[in-house]
Structure formats: structure tokens, C-alpha cells
Design a binder for these strands. Structure first.
Lengths: 202, 202, 202, 202
DNA sequence: GATGAATGAGTATTCATTCAT
DNA sequence: CATGAATGAATACTCATTCAT
């Protein structure tokens, strides 16, 4: 960001802009996301927007950062161990669905459509790493071991699979479909229960 | 299309344009997909592009149609029954990876970013229906029954999960990662083997 | 024209093109008059059109020439003298209305909207001169004298007034309105009857 | 208009654009009226033009509105009764000529060539109605009666005749020709004096 | 600081015209 | 000669960004 806002008023302005941007990004996609529209929805002049965000990329990065922070916070608050795979899966799906409820399209737009400064693009980004290790950890925990290389990969596959299901549901406006939730839970539970086993060993 | 190409020359031009469009859509996303860029990459004038495609939407629909046809053809050539879940999963992953190999980002861009004429947008589209029933069928087959309502949902979840894994791999440029393939195969196999069972029954 | 058509077939082609052009010009105005559209309506290829007309201006000039020839022919066939002003006015209005009946908007488009090569633009054009002298003559005849300078001006005013009435009627699609015809006849009759008189002398 | 200009600066910009548009429309006709040319002549960027006019049609409507307002104002300031037909005719011609002096071709271009939003197109438009009833009124007044149906038609014929004479004079660049003015005055006077009479009654 | 007027490069699309077949 | 595929300059309009007030 161009300028760290010192005063409370400025901080509020920045938040308003980020929130307006998130709403537009979610509802209209990257194509409908114009700086003038964001400023208008936020109720500030276009000049003010550029006071806080030197360009569009910086703004979208701020929105992304905010969104990923929120998502990670939701995941971190989940209990990792001390819980059966089935219960964990239920809580996980709840958390992911909740994270997508505020701005249903936002996650996908931020990851797929919107361009981003290097920081978020590469697979080594702070968020990717934390996100991934969260899943690797969960898998290892339910396999009663500490995370190994295979768990990293399994974690990625699991998180991407969940992402795919949720994302496509969001696209159809069916993010709260209970039957879908149940099936997704079943998929996760199966995977968690069986990871690390050589297939067919059960 | 605006005009049926009569001569061989023009048929070739149309193919070149569609191919160039697919490439750009795949590499740059919807935002980078400009008609002038497509024409340039195709090596034809902008006028030629508009001779065959009355507008951008029609062009993107042609690309989508081509891509989905190819994808469905790949799936249809898979053996459905007479094969163990594990073997089926291996072949399925191979087919999906192959379909994404030519233009890695194309599938997601076409489904998520690019606008489209009604035909493809709604969930009742010819392709969605065939795609979905393919998965419902596979699940039912491996459960030794004919497809029921639950299989429809399971089919959607499975196909969306696979989609998520493949898409994110494509985003990272890791679509040919063998370890990922193996994990994905395991996920599918588990799900196919257990679908229809009440969880915990195994 | 680029090429004098020698054979009957060529002459027919040229006529078809001119007729198609007149129709489009009349129905769609200058803005809708594109060479490709004319060729299509005429049922010839765009290449053939350019075989006979080196450019758009030449084509529009051919249409104009044809139209003005037709119009003049209609006027020339009117009896000039040996007839009361009232009867002359009736016949004149009939002729003018008839000339506008085939392609109602054509006259205006050709004179106002469509650009033209110098030949038609300037007031000394062959057609303007003949047209004008026709009216000057009519006025002089009904004033029992040979045409003088004042008659030239009166002729212009009369022909322009008639043009205005007919043109605006065409615009409203009311070119066959009998009440309007009657009023126009009255206007012409009054003017013919009084021209040359010092106003107030009657 | 897209945006109400708040500051004095922007109000001036809008006026400049409308004026430039009128000039171009008058000199070059609808075909030469391009938004980029208007912006250039107005000395503003194309972006500024679109800040105030969402599209070309809105701009041309603004020009038309302005022009018709001006024209009506000129007519309304004329004394209707208490004046001989001849004097009235003189004043009328003066007013019409004055209205066409600033932008000679504008009136016809606006009415004939330029497309317009519904408001102006149909014969029931506010302007058409007022314009027409003005002439019907004038005719009735000079016939010492209140306007009847026949006066409506006569009004239309008279106004269209005047329009034709003025327009064609403008086309020839001869709008200030005194001899023409005199003849036109005579035409109007005759018509006003005789309207309502059965022809031949004088 | 805040405002919003102004900028202009960029994008979709049209159409007169050329030329290989 | 006829065809129609190909060309590209021109046109309406958008939107990120700047800067005078």
C-alpha cells in the first residue's frame, strides 16, 4: 500500500474500499471490477482511492490478503486432533462453506481471474505454505504419524478436491446443498481414514 | 457462425482462428483474450476473424464447443465396466490429464471466466448432462446397481473434486506430476469402492 | 463507370446493381448503403460489383443519374401551356408524387445525404439547370410572357417549396394523403396565378 | 446525460461539446459526425465527451434539443395577430433565416439523417406539435377564425414549403439571398391571404 | 487531504476495396 | 470474367490513472 493510514478515519476508509472491492469482485467478477466502481460503491472519490492504493493491482492484493487471512483464521480455529476423521470432516466442510458464504465468488476470482503481484502467484507464498501444511498435518494426525513428503502431496490433493467441489457448487448457487455436504464429508472421511495405507490393505 | 466457409482456404482460416483463440484463452485468461490478439496470433487480419465470427461471444462459444467435444470424446472412449475401480481410476486420470494437456488453463477459463450464450451457461446444457451422467453411471456400475439419485450427487462431487485437483495442478504447471496422479487415483478408487456403503461399513 | 458493358448480360447486371442500390438507399438511407449489401441484394458477388463500378461514389452517381433521368422524363411529359394553372398544378403534383412512389426516400437521400462527384453537387449541373428552367418556364407561361430573371428565382422557390412538402410527407409515410395533395395544388395554383404581379394587385 | 456537471469547468465543457457537435453536424452531415472529431473540435479528449454523454445518440439528442429550443424561442417571439399577412410573412422569414444562419445545414440533418431516441422521432413529439399548431394558428388568425382541421393541414403544407425553400437555399449556400427572401415572403403572403377561401373566389 | 474533471491508450467491430483462385 | 476470402483503416466506447481546484 502507498501509505500506512495513521488516523482512525483513514483506516476506516481503507476498510470500506477493500470491502467494496470484495463485494464487486464477488458479484461481477474481475471483468466488472473497475476502480471507479469500487470508489463509488465505497462512497469515496476516485482520487481518494488512489491516495491509498497506488494502482489496481495493489488494491486487489489488499483484498486477497484480507480474504486469505480470514480464511486461514477460520481453519486455524478448527480442532485438528482429538477428534474422529468423520467429525473433523464435518467441521472442515462447515468452515469452508462458511468462508465462501460472505462473498461466494470471491475465492475463485482472486485465485483464478485476478492478476496478482508475485507474492501471491508463486507456490511458495506464505498462504499456500500455511494452507498446505495445515492439510498435510491433518492427514498425518489422522494417520498417527508426523507429516512426511507423501502427506504433503495428499494434502494438496485433498485441499484441491474440496476446493473444486465447493467452487463448482458456488458456481451453481448450490453452496448450501446438504446432500452435497454429506457426500463431500464422506469423501474427506474416506481419504483421511485411508491415507498412508497401501491401497487394498484395509 | 456468420458464414459457412466454402473453400478449403477459408475452412483452414477458421480452424487457425479457433486454435489461436484456445491458446490465448488458456495462457492469458479471459482478460487477455482480445479479438485483435487472436487474429494476430492466428496470422490473419481482424477483418477475417469477423468474417466468420460475428462477435467475440460466438468465437468463444466455438472454442468451447470444440473443447468440450474433444473432452467428451476422450471420456466416451474409456471402458466403463469390466474393469476394477483402481484400473478405471487410472484410465480416467489419464484421460482427464490428456484433455488438459493441450491447453492447460482452457477448461476452467471456459467454464468460469468466459461469458457464454445461454446454451452452455445453464446446468441443463447438453454437455453438463452427459458429463454428469457419465460419472453417475461409473459410480453405479462399480456399486453393482443402476444409477439412483444419490449416484447423481456423488457423481457431481467426484467430478468436481477431480476438476479441482487437475485445475489447481494446471495453475501450478504441475499437471504431469506423477505423485499427484497416484494420489488422485487413490482418491477416486476409494470413493468408487465405497460409494453406496454407509460410512463405516467397510 | 469503369467499363462500358458491351454485352446484354453485362448491361442487365449493371441495371440489377443500380436497382438494388436504389432500393437500399431508399429503405435504409445512406448509412445502410454498403457495397456488400448492394451486391448481395443484386445477387452478384462483391467482385462483380467492382468490375462495373470502380468505387462507391461511382455507383451512387449512377443511381442518382438514373433517378434524375426518370424524374425529368416524368416532368417533360407534362403539358406546359394550353392548360389552366389549376389543372397544371394538379398534373404537376401527380407527377411529383408518382416520381416519389417507387422509392419514397430515394430523392432526399440522393440530394441531401449521399456525397457526389462534383458533376451533381454544383448548381450548374445539367439536371439543376433543366429542372429550374422547367419551372421558370411554367411560371412565365402562366404569366403570359417569356421567362425573365425574376421567373428564375420564382421557379426555384416554387420547386423547392414543392420539394419540401413532398419530402416531409414522405418522411411521415403520408405521401398519398389526398388532403395534402389538395392543399399543395392550391399553393401552386395561387403562386402561378399571382407570379409577376405586384403583391396586393389582385 | 450521464452525469450532471457540478463545477463551472465541466458545464463549460459540455457546452463546448454540444457546440462543436452542432458545427460538425451542420458542415459534414451525419456521416462526418464522429465522436472523435467532435471531441477534437471541442478541444477535449474523447474521454471527456463520454463523461457527459453516454453514447453518440445522447449527444445528438442534446444538440437537437438545444437547436429546437432555440428555433421555437425565435418563433414564439413573433407577433401573431395585429399585423398584416405581408408583415407577418416578412417577420417569419426573418426568423426562420436567422434560425438557420448559425448552422445552416443543422436543421435538416437533425430531422432527416440523424437517428434519434423515440422522443423526437414520432410525429407526436412535443416539438412537432408546437411547431405545427403555431402555423395552424397563424393561418387561422389571418383568416379571422379559430383553427380548424383544414388549418392543421394547411399549416403543415406551409411550414414544409418554407422548410424546403430554406433548406435548399442553405444547401446552395444562398440562405441570405434577398431576392429569394422576397419571393418566399410573397408565397407565404398569398397563401395566408387566401387560405380558407375556395380557390378562385378572390 | 479530498474531489471529480480530464486524459488517452486500448478494445470490439464495420466496411470499402483488393486479389488469388 | 466471376467469385468470395482477405485486408486494415476507421469508429464507438471504456477505464486506469493524473492533476488542477
Amino acid at each position: 500500500m502507498r501509505k500506512e493510514p495513521r488516523q482512525a478515519r483513514s483506516r476506516a476508509t481503507v476498510e470500506t474500499i477493500v470491502e467494496a472491492g470484495a463485494r464487486i469482485l464477488s458479484n461481477e467478477g474481475w471483468a466488472g471490477f473497475t476502480t471507479n466502481r469500487v470508489a463509488e460503491l465505497a462512497g469515496v472519490s476516485i482520487g481518494s482511492l488512489y491516495q491509498y492504493f497506488p494502482d489496481k493491482l495493489t488494491l486487489v492484493d489488499a483484498i486477497r490478503s484480507q480474504h486469505l487471512d480470514d480464511s486461514m483464521a477460520a481453519m486455524r480455529s478448527l480442532p485438528a486432533g482429538e477428534i474422529t476423521p468423520a467429525d473433523f470432516a464435518v467441521r472442515l466442510v462447515e468452515a469452508v462453506v462458511a468462508a465462501h458464504s460472505v462473498h461466494p465468488g470471491l475465492h475463485r476470482v482472486l485465485l483464478d481471474e485476478a492478476p496478482s503481484s508475485e507474492e501471491y502467484r508463486n507456490p511458495e507464498s506464505k498462504f499456500e505454505i500455511e494452507y498446505l501444511s495445515y492439510f498435510a498435518n491433518a492427514i498425518a494426525t489422522h494417520g498417527n504419524r508426523s507429516p512426511n513428503a507423501a502427506d504433503q502431496i495428499a494434502g494438496r490433493v485433498l485441499s484441491d478436491a474440496i476446493d473444486g467441489v465447493i467452487h463448482n457448487a458456488a458456481r451453481r448457487g448450490a453452496i448450501h446443498d446438504q446432500a452435497m455436504h454429506k457426500e463431500l464429508v464422506r469423501l474427506i472421511t474416506l481419504y483421511l481414514g485411508a491415507t498412508g495405507q497401501v491401497l487394498g490393505d484395509s
